[in-house]
């Protein structure tokens, strides 16, 4: 398989289709990241689209020192964080989780059954708990557990030490555990 960086080079030389090959390869990861960070498919789609557009526009700043995918994750994380700030400003917090759940289920069934991403209530619970974590913890959890990145890769991506990644993961899982306990219907 042709390495991503070859396509990056072609993109820099003015070949937009080369970049579209990168979109084809990585859109699912970036969408997945956005979905875990933002918690709903519509925002995740928009954020993924914006992340790729942002990456395309600033492809000149890619230094060829890291892998393209690492750089792309970084762009994706930045875009998602901007989105979160915006949605925090919109103050879209719902009054109760059960209402949220019911609304979402209704929404999926009525309008977009093909977007039924969270099949079970448990998955929704977890996603909801993840959405409530601070963004730094969401990021490590998503990258480590869902995107299967290694400590070293996450550390490089977030520009911190592997120790920081490890301790942030600990905190994240511990927080998530207590959130799940409080959300879990008994």
């Amino acid at each position: 398989m042709i390495p991503d960086e070859i396509y990056v080079q072609k993109t820099i030389e003015g070949d937009a289709e080369a970049f579209n090959e990168l979109v084809q390869r990585h859109h699912a990861r970036i969408y997945g990241l956005a979905y875990r960070m933002l918690g709903n498919p519509d925002d995740a789609s928009d954020a993924a689209q914006e992340a790729f557009l942002e990456a395309y526009k600033s492809i000149q700043s890619f230094q060829f020192q890291s892998k393209f995918v690492t750089w792309m994750y970084r762009v994706g994380i930045n875009v998602c964080q901007q989105y979160k700030r915006k949605s925090d400003a919109r103050n879209r917090t719902l009054t109760s989780y059960t209402k949220d759940l019911r609304d979402r289920e209704g929404q999926y069934v009525n309008h977009c059954p093909d977007r039924l991403l969270l099949k079970t209530e448990r998955d929704q619970l977890i996603q909801h708990a993840i959405s409530q974590l601070p963004s730094k913890q969401q990021i490590v959890i998503t990258l480590f557990y869902m995107q299967q990145l290694k400590y070293r890769e996450i550390a490089e991506l977030l520009d911190c030490s592997e120790g920081t990644v490890a301790s942030r993961l600990n905190t994240a899982v511990r927080n998530l555990k207590s959130k799940l306990e409080s959300l879990q219907p008994h």
Binding site: A16, V23, D114, Y145, M146
Partner: peptide, 27 residues
Amino acid sequence: HTAVVLESLPEPVPPPGLVERIQTQIR
């Protein structure tokens, strides 16, 4: 247990047409 649950979460599937939408915008 939490970690196992996290690992077992299904990967979100991008909505159909997302790739095309992004690619069109790039063009």
